Computed example of a mutant assay.
Amino acid sequence: MIILASMSKKLLLILSLFISYCSYAQNKIVVFQSDFGLKDGAVSAMKGVAMGVSPHLKLYDLTHEIPAYNIWEASYRLYQTVTYWPAGTVFVSVVDPGVGTSRKSVVLKTNTGQYIVTPDNGTLTLVSESLGIAEIRQIDENVNRRRGSEKSYTFHGRDVYAYTAARLAAGVITYEQVGPELPKEVVKLPYQKAELENGKLKGTIDILDVQYGNLWTNIGDDLIKPLNLKVGDVLHLIVYHNGKKAYEGDAPYSSTFGQVAKGKPLAYLNSLLQLSFALNQGSFADVYKIGSGSEWSVLVSRK
């Protein structure tokens, strides 16, 4: 009897661990991102496909306002967001100007346990570097494609990505059943990585704080520390577009926007602790015609 009781306790422990693992691997959360906008039914169609797989899924939006075909911004928004979602969350990112071509459709598992369903077209550039690649698999469309969609070549977001993501999140398929494993490599967009060289900071304007027109660079606070900046110190900023100078000027290093007069420039750390530039109550991007992405780089030094 004692032996049986001991075995029962072990079995219960194993069962508990198994249930815990399953809840970790499949939390039923799917997060959608696209460049579709919300003017038509494209986003609703993707969510409808997901709910058709399982009505118990929890569906959320990252954004559907990525500028059309802007793969870099899709990459950035994943980098900005994925890390805050629990392990097991499945992201669907559809910014796919090459839909129907030979680019691979993949599901990447990050080292922190999130999954990203997307074309391998550069969308995974930043998240693969920031969170790392635990594994990557190519979607087997013979298995993971919405039934009856075989003749459709222009809406993989609905027919392949939303369908595969829903099946994975709902536990209908395991990650291994997505398709064959690939080398831990993804297509990457070229860009100026953040670095400190001879007292000068180099980097990329990753994104615009779109509501306000602030310039967010990829230069983190770890690179800024060696400069021993204090509030009020003046930084000299040069912005390049495809290697050609687009802007040059000075901005005081500030902890709040109100430390400079209205309309005046300032440098500050954004919510991701990266060096950024703004006009107090104005749009830096609009006033000086500056954009974001891999073709926009910066050179920053102390004045």
Rank of each mutant, 00 (worst) to 15 (best):
G132R: 02
Y21A: 15
V260R: 13
V231S: 04
K245Q: 14
S23R: 11
G282T: 11
D140W: 09
N27P: 01
T174D: 13
Y191D: 03
L108H: 04
T256H: 13
N111W: 01
K303S: 15
T174E: 13
G199Q: 12
K47P: 00
N142S: 08
L299T: 14
V210F: 11
T125D: 02
K289M: 05
S16R: 12
L108K: 06
S301D: 09
Q33C: 04
R137N: 03
D250W: 05
G171R: 06
D233G: 11
N198H: 11
M1L: 10
R77C: 07
I207A: 12
I29Q: 13
G41K: 09
K104T: 03
Y76V: 13
E73A: 08
E185L: 13
N242M: 02
V107I: 15
D40V: 11
V30F: 03
D250Y: 09
I290K: 00
L196W: 00
I136A: 03
N218L: 12
V30L: 04
A285R: 05
A261T: 11
R103N: 12
V99F: 10
A5Q: 07
V31P: 03
A25P: 00
L237S: 07
Y253A: 05
E185W: 08
G179H: 08
K245A: 13
Q259S: 03
G291E: 11
V127P: 00
K264I: 08
E129H: 01
Y175M: 12
Q138E: 15
H241E: 15
L279Y: 04
L126R: 07
G157M: 04
L229I: 12
V287P: 04
L38N: 06
H64M: 08
V178T: 08
L78D: 00
K58M: 10
I3N: 08
L131I: 03
V239E: 06
D61V: 03
